[in-house]
């Protein structure tokens, strides 16, 4: 053997490789809080908080001097579309919560009052559903950009 030390070194490196590969440092799985919600208001609450967390990460990317200007611009455009959608969602969920409280308060009232409250709650629920659906794509776009940069 011409280079026994090199052969031993290579053997050691190869032997260490599986040990390196088995290291578990942390679980980087990204959670989706919205799927845990069971009601409309819980979905909206989860969506707003999750969106805030995504913007916080996007802010860190924008503050990174190494991040490309074009990418920062894309984040800015995505945020300008997503935040108004989140604001619309907040207005819709607030209206839904009010309508639900009115409906619960009307349970002991006359039939016409109860029917009016039920109609208002149905409309508020439909609008909240629409706001959730409308916010989904712009929020997902910003989230995808953040993950693309981070992942």
């Amino acid at each position: 053997m011409r280079h026994p030390l090199r052969a031993i070194a290579l053997a050691c490196a190869l032997a260490a490789t599986p040990a390196c590969a088995s290291v578990q440092v942390a679980d980087t799985r990204i959670e989706n809080p919205i799927v845990a919600a069971r009601t409309l208001d819980q979905r909206a609450y989860a969506a707003l908080h999750a969106y805030a967390a995504v913007i916080e990460e996007a802010t860190d990317i924008v503050r990174d001097p190494a991040a490309p200007v074009g990418f920062k611009r894309a984040l800015g455009q995505a945020e300008r579309v997503a935040t108004p959608a989140a604001e619309t969602l907040q207005i819709a969920v607030a209206a839904y919560v009010r309508a639900r409280a009115d409906f619960e308060a009307a349970s002991g009232e006359t039939q016409p009052t109860l029917e009016r409250a039920a109609t208002a709650l149905t409309i508020a629920a439909r609008r909240l559903n629409e706001a959730l659906a409308a916010a989904e794509a712009p929020i997902a776009e910003l989230e995808d950009l953040v993950r693309a940069r981070r992942g």
Binding site: E31, H49, E56, E57
Partner: peptide, 16 residues
């Protein structure tokens, strides 16, 4: 930072 985002989302999910 990815872990940071994952942690934040996991905390929200746990609350929901």
């Amino acid at each position: 930072n990815v872990d940071d985002l994952a942690l934040k989302l996991a905390a929200i999910r746990a609350e929901v």
